[in-house]
Protein backbone atom coordinates (compact mmCIF):
# COMPACT_ATOMS: atom_id res chain seq x y z
CA UNK A 1 0.00 0.00 0.00
CA UNK A 2 1.40 3.39 -0.86
CA UNK A 3 1.93 5.98 1.80
CA UNK A 4 -0.64 8.22 0.09
CA UNK A 5 -3.36 5.58 0.19
CA UNK A 6 -2.55 4.77 3.78
CA UNK A 7 -2.66 8.42 4.71
CA UNK A 8 -6.04 8.75 3.03
CA UNK A 9 -7.34 5.67 4.83
CA UNK A 10 -6.21 6.96 8.19
CA UNK A 11 -7.66 10.36 7.45
CA UNK A 12 -4.33 12.10 7.84
CA UNK A 13 -3.80 15.63 6.75
CA UNK A 14 -0.66 16.93 5.19
CA UNK A 15 0.92 20.33 5.55
CA UNK A 16 -0.57 21.36 2.23
CA UNK A 17 -4.02 21.23 3.73
CA UNK A 18 -3.25 23.47 6.66
CA UNK A 19 -5.01 26.78 6.82
CA UNK A 20 -2.58 29.55 5.89
CA UNK A 21 -1.84 31.94 8.73
CA UNK A 22 -3.04 35.50 8.46
CA UNK A 23 -0.54 37.81 6.86
CA UNK A 24 1.33 39.84 9.40
CA UNK A 25 0.08 43.40 9.20
CA UNK A 26 3.09 45.51 8.35
CA UNK A 27 3.56 49.24 8.19
CA UNK A 28 2.40 49.56 4.60
CA UNK A 29 -1.11 50.93 4.37
CA UNK A 30 -3.13 49.71 1.43
CA UNK A 31 -6.27 51.48 0.33
CA UNK A 32 -9.27 49.96 -1.39
CA UNK A 33 -8.15 51.14 -4.81
CA UNK A 34 -5.39 49.18 -6.46
CA UNK A 35 -2.59 51.39 -5.29
CA UNK A 36 1.11 50.72 -5.08
CA UNK A 37 2.65 51.97 -1.82
CA UNK A 38 5.34 54.64 -1.99
CA UNK A 39 7.62 56.24 0.58
CA UNK A 40 5.99 58.97 2.66
CA UNK A 41 7.90 61.85 1.03
CA UNK A 42 6.65 60.78 -2.43
CA UNK A 43 3.14 60.04 -1.15
CA UNK A 44 2.55 63.76 -0.53
CA UNK A 45 3.04 64.41 -4.24
CA UNK A 46 0.60 61.80 -5.52
CA UNK A 47 -3.21 62.12 -5.73
CA UNK A 48 -4.15 59.09 -3.64
CA UNK A 49 -0.94 58.83 -1.65
CA UNK A 50 0.26 55.96 -3.81
CA UNK A 51 1.12 55.14 -7.41
CA UNK A 52 -2.08 55.05 -9.43
CA UNK A 53 -2.58 54.09 -13.06
CA UNK A 54 -0.47 56.63 -14.92
CA UNK A 55 2.24 58.96 -13.66
CA UNK A 56 4.42 61.09 -15.91
CA UNK A 57 7.91 62.10 -14.88
CA UNK A 58 9.71 64.81 -16.85
CA UNK A 59 12.96 63.16 -17.87
CA UNK A 60 14.82 66.18 -19.19
CA UNK A 61 15.23 67.85 -15.79
CA UNK A 62 18.40 67.47 -13.76
CA UNK A 63 17.63 65.09 -10.89
CA UNK A 64 14.90 63.16 -12.72
CA UNK A 65 16.72 59.84 -12.37
CA UNK A 66 17.13 60.31 -8.63
CA UNK A 67 13.40 61.08 -8.40
CA UNK A 68 12.58 57.94 -10.40
CA UNK A 69 14.61 55.76 -8.03
CA UNK A 70 13.00 57.40 -5.03
CA UNK A 71 9.60 56.74 -6.63
CA UNK A 72 10.46 53.04 -6.95
CA UNK A 73 11.89 52.81 -3.41
CA UNK A 74 8.46 52.30 -1.83
CA UNK A 75 7.11 49.64 -4.21
CA UNK A 76 10.31 47.56 -4.32
CA UNK A 77 10.81 47.57 -0.57
CA UNK A 78 7.15 46.56 -0.15
CA UNK A 79 8.01 43.51 -2.27
CA UNK A 80 6.34 44.60 -5.54
CA UNK A 81 8.17 43.86 -8.78
CA UNK A 82 9.13 46.95 -10.75
CA UNK A 83 10.10 46.63 -14.40
CA UNK A 84 12.09 49.39 -16.08
CA UNK A 85 11.89 49.09 -19.85
CA UNK A 86 14.23 50.56 -22.42
CA UNK A 87 16.16 53.02 -20.28
CA UNK A 88 19.85 52.73 -20.97
CA UNK A 89 22.95 54.57 -19.87
CA UNK A 90 22.25 54.35 -16.17
CA UNK A 91 24.27 53.13 -13.22
CA UNK A 92 21.63 51.02 -11.52
CA UNK A 93 23.71 50.65 -8.37
CA UNK A 94 22.81 54.27 -7.54
CA UNK A 95 19.20 53.15 -7.05
CA UNK A 96 20.10 51.29 -3.87
CA UNK A 97 21.22 54.51 -2.20
CA UNK A 98 17.79 56.02 -2.94
CA UNK A 99 16.13 53.12 -1.10
CA UNK A 100 15.33 50.77 -3.98
CA UNK A 101 15.44 47.06 -3.18
CA UNK A 102 17.48 45.88 -6.16
CA UNK A 103 16.16 42.32 -5.79
CA UNK A 104 12.75 43.56 -6.98
CA UNK A 105 13.94 45.78 -9.80
CA UNK A 106 14.02 44.23 -13.27
CA UNK A 107 15.83 46.10 -16.03
CA UNK A 108 14.41 45.21 -19.43
CA UNK A 109 16.51 45.85 -22.49
CA UNK A 110 14.57 46.08 -25.73
CA UNK A 111 14.08 48.39 -28.67
CA UNK A 112 11.65 49.01 -31.52
CA UNK A 113 8.66 46.67 -31.89
CA UNK A 114 10.08 44.26 -29.32
CA UNK A 115 9.94 47.03 -26.74
CA UNK A 116 6.21 47.51 -27.44
CA UNK A 117 5.51 43.77 -27.13
CA UNK A 118 7.51 43.48 -23.93
CA UNK A 119 5.83 46.54 -22.40
CA UNK A 120 2.41 45.14 -23.28
CA UNK A 121 3.28 41.78 -21.72
CA UNK A 122 4.59 43.46 -18.57
CA UNK A 123 1.61 45.81 -18.28
CA UNK A 124 -0.54 42.70 -17.91
CA UNK A 125 0.93 41.82 -14.56
CA UNK A 126 3.81 43.68 -12.92
CA UNK A 127 2.74 46.19 -10.24
CA UNK A 128 4.94 49.02 -11.58
CA UNK A 129 6.15 49.54 -15.13
CA UNK A 130 8.50 52.34 -16.16
CA UNK A 131 8.51 53.05 -19.92
CA UNK A 132 10.06 55.80 -22.05
CA UNK A 133 7.38 57.81 -23.82
CA UNK A 134 9.70 58.49 -26.77
CA UNK A 135 9.42 54.86 -27.90
CA UNK A 136 5.64 55.03 -28.27
CA UNK A 137 3.31 56.80 -30.70
CA UNK A 138 0.34 58.54 -29.02
CA UNK A 139 -1.98 55.68 -30.04
CA UNK A 140 0.36 52.99 -28.73
CA UNK A 141 0.82 55.00 -25.57
CA UNK A 142 -2.96 55.25 -24.94
CA UNK A 143 -3.33 51.54 -25.62
CA UNK A 144 -0.64 50.67 -23.09
CA UNK A 145 -2.13 52.99 -20.46
CA UNK A 146 -5.55 51.39 -21.00
CA UNK A 147 -4.07 47.94 -20.64
CA UNK A 148 -2.27 48.98 -17.47
CA UNK A 149 -5.50 50.43 -16.02
CA UNK A 150 -7.35 47.18 -16.68
CA UNK A 151 -4.76 45.00 -15.02
CA UNK A 152 -4.01 47.30 -12.11
CA UNK A 153 -0.45 48.05 -13.20
CA UNK A 154 0.87 51.48 -12.28
CA UNK A 155 2.68 52.88 -15.28
CA UNK A 156 5.34 55.55 -14.89
CA UNK A 157 6.10 57.40 -18.13
CA UNK A 158 9.72 58.45 -18.45
CA UNK A 159 8.53 61.50 -20.30
CA UNK A 160 10.80 62.67 -23.07
CA UNK A 161 7.76 63.45 -25.24
CA UNK A 162 4.59 64.74 -23.52
CA UNK A 163 2.04 62.03 -22.77
CA UNK A 164 -1.73 62.41 -22.49
CA UNK A 165 -3.96 61.30 -19.67
CA UNK A 166 -1.51 61.03 -16.77
CA UNK A 167 -3.04 61.08 -13.29
CA UNK A 168 -0.07 62.96 -11.93
CA UNK A 169 2.82 64.79 -13.56
CA UNK A 170 6.01 65.16 -11.60
CA UNK A 171 8.74 67.57 -12.52
CA UNK A 172 11.97 68.43 -10.77
CA UNK A 173 12.13 72.22 -10.68
CA UNK A 174 15.42 72.45 -8.84
CA UNK A 175 18.19 70.09 -7.82
CA UNK A 176 20.56 71.05 -5.03
CA UNK A 177 23.66 68.94 -4.60
CA UNK A 178 25.11 69.17 -1.12
CA UNK A 179 28.58 68.63 0.17
CA UNK A 180 30.82 70.27 -2.42
CA UNK A 181 32.53 73.56 -1.59
CA UNK A 182 33.81 76.40 -3.71
CA UNK A 183 37.43 75.68 -2.67
CA UNK A 184 38.55 78.83 -4.47
CA UNK A 185 42.24 78.96 -5.16
CA UNK A 186 42.94 75.57 -3.60
CA UNK A 187 44.77 72.70 -5.18
CA UNK A 188 42.96 70.05 -3.21
CA UNK A 189 39.20 70.34 -2.74
CA UNK A 190 37.69 69.43 0.65
CA UNK A 191 34.22 67.92 1.04
CA UNK A 192 32.37 65.36 -1.01
CA UNK A 193 28.97 65.13 -2.61
CA UNK A 194 26.77 63.58 0.07
CA UNK A 195 23.15 64.52 -0.47
CA UNK A 196 20.73 66.02 -2.90
CA UNK A 197 17.59 68.04 -2.40
CA UNK A 198 15.06 67.91 -5.23
CA UNK A 199 12.32 70.49 -5.48
CA UNK A 200 9.49 68.61 -7.09
CA UNK A 201 6.31 70.12 -8.51
CA UNK A 202 3.33 67.82 -9.04
CA UNK A 203 0.32 68.61 -11.18
CA UNK A 204 -2.66 66.33 -10.82
CA UNK A 205 -5.26 65.46 -13.40
CA UNK A 206 -7.97 67.26 -11.39
CA UNK A 207 -6.00 70.51 -11.57
CA UNK A 208 -4.55 70.49 -8.06
CA UNK A 209 -0.85 70.92 -7.59
CA UNK A 210 1.68 70.13 -4.89
CA UNK A 211 5.24 71.17 -4.14
CA UNK A 212 7.71 69.32 -1.98
CA UNK A 213 11.43 68.97 -1.46
CA UNK A 214 12.59 65.37 -1.64
CA UNK A 215 15.89 64.12 -0.22
CA UNK A 216 16.36 60.84 -2.11
CA UNK A 217 19.66 60.00 -0.46
CA UNK A 218 18.86 61.32 2.99
CA UNK A 219 21.60 63.59 4.13
CA UNK A 220 21.90 66.94 5.80
CA UNK A 221 19.17 69.43 5.21
CA UNK A 222 20.37 73.04 5.21
CA UNK A 223 20.24 74.44 8.71
CA UNK A 224 21.05 71.11 10.31
CA UNK A 225 24.73 71.65 9.86
CA UNK A 226 26.77 73.34 12.52
CA UNK A 227 29.78 74.92 10.95
CA UNK A 228 32.60 74.38 13.44
CA UNK A 229 34.76 77.03 11.84
CA UNK A 230 32.18 79.68 12.67
CA UNK A 231 32.11 78.79 16.36
CA UNK A 232 35.65 79.92 16.98
Amino acid sequence: MTAAALAAQLGLRTAGELAPAERASGGVVTSSRSMVPVTSDIARLLPYGGLAAATALAAARVGATSLLWRLLAGPTSAGAWCAVVGLSGMYPSAAAAAGVDLARLVLVEADGPRLLDAAAALAGGVPVLVAPSAAFTPIQERRLTARARRSGTAIVWWQTRPVAGADARLEVTGAHWQGLRANTGRRWGAGRLNACGLEVAARWRGGASRQATIWPYGGDRPGNVIDLRRRR
Binding site: P92, L102, L107, V108, E109, D117, A118, A121
Partner: peptide, 14 residues
Protein backbone atom coordinates in the same frame (compact mmCIF):
# COMPACT_ATOMS: atom_id res chain seq x y z
CA UNK B 1 6.11 36.28 -20.65
CA UNK B 2 8.36 39.25 -21.45
CA UNK B 3 11.40 37.05 -21.01
CA UNK B 4 9.89 34.60 -23.48
CA UNK B 5 9.59 37.43 -26.00
CA UNK B 6 12.98 39.00 -25.49
CA UNK B 7 15.16 36.09 -24.43
CA UNK B 8 16.60 35.41 -20.99
CA UNK B 9 19.45 37.93 -20.97
CA UNK B 10 17.33 40.98 -21.71
CA UNK B 11 15.56 40.96 -18.33
CA UNK B 12 18.11 41.58 -15.67
CA UNK B 13 18.46 41.96 -11.94
CA UNK B 14 21.18 44.12 -10.50
Amino acid sequence: HAQGLLGPDNLRIV
